[in-house]
Amino acid sequence: MSDAIADAKRALRADLRERRNLMSAAARDTAESGITAQLDALLDRFGVRSMSCFLSTTTEPGTRQFVTEAVRRGIRVLLPITRADGLLDWSVATPDLDITEGMYGLPEPVGEVLGPIAVNDVDLLVIPAAAVGQDGTRLGWGRGFFDKTIGSMERCPPVYAVIYDTELLDSVPRDVHDQPVSGVVTPTRTIDLAPARR
């Protein structure tokens, strides 16, 4: 990655992190309800039976309510578990989900650990992002877990990034390893994007 791209990504992430930290609890609750409704509609649209999702941190658009409701609906939801080698293991969400703090302080499930290839059979990937550009370029938080996962899949299903409405930008800095997304889910809408091609 060139220094210019790395610097641009760092600066944008810092700005986005600060904005998220300034959100009120009420705004976060409203956003989580909106995200849940948008993701529920996405499940119906794609006829999803099995998917991956992530457990949101306190500043991310909330996904935990959605995960609980999806499990209640009988959807198989795989949740990521970070690994030291940069790959992701997975665990199936359960109705009595137990959460612990994983690497980097991220919330992760406690349960049977499935290897990285467990995600190969899902109908939909729902992933975190700091921001997404109009061309589908996703800006993550810099650790590369989801870029590696998406890049290693033989048959990648639709990939949607969960962000706040203000985080869909005209463009974001992009490097060769960055994997595009199919669309974004925000608290107020779901937008399909034409992923950038290399």
Rank of each mutant, 00 (worst) to 15 (best):
N21C: 06
I150W: 02
P107Y: 08
I81K: 10
E154S: 12
R197E: 10
D89M: 07
K9R: 13
A93D: 03
L39Y: 02
G133A: 12
E154M: 10
P116Q: 08
S33H: 15
S56C: 09
A6I: 11
S33Y: 04
W90S: 08
V110W: 00
R28T: 01
M103E: 11
A11M: 13
R49C: 10
R155T: 14
P95N: 07
L78I: 09
R198N: 09
I191G: 00
A37R: 14
V71E: 05
R72D: 13
P95K: 05
E18R: 15
G133T: 01
P95C: 08
R13I: 03
A27I: 00
S2K: 10
Q134I: 06
A161Q: 01
R138M: 02
E167W: 01
V184P: 01
D40L: 14
I191L: 08
G34A: 09
A196R: 12
D89Y: 04
I5Y: 03
K9D: 07
V48E: 02
D178G: 02
R10I: 10
Y104T: 03
R28N: 05
P80S: 04
R83H: 07
R198A: 07
A161N: 00
C156R: 06
V113E: 12
P61V: 01
E18A: 15
R19P: 03
E112V: 13
M51D: 06
A129K: 00
T186K: 05
L79R: 01
G144E: 11
A25I: 12
D29Q: 14
L79A: 11
A37G: 06
L193H: 01
L22Q: 15
L22S: 15
T36W: 02
M1Y: 05
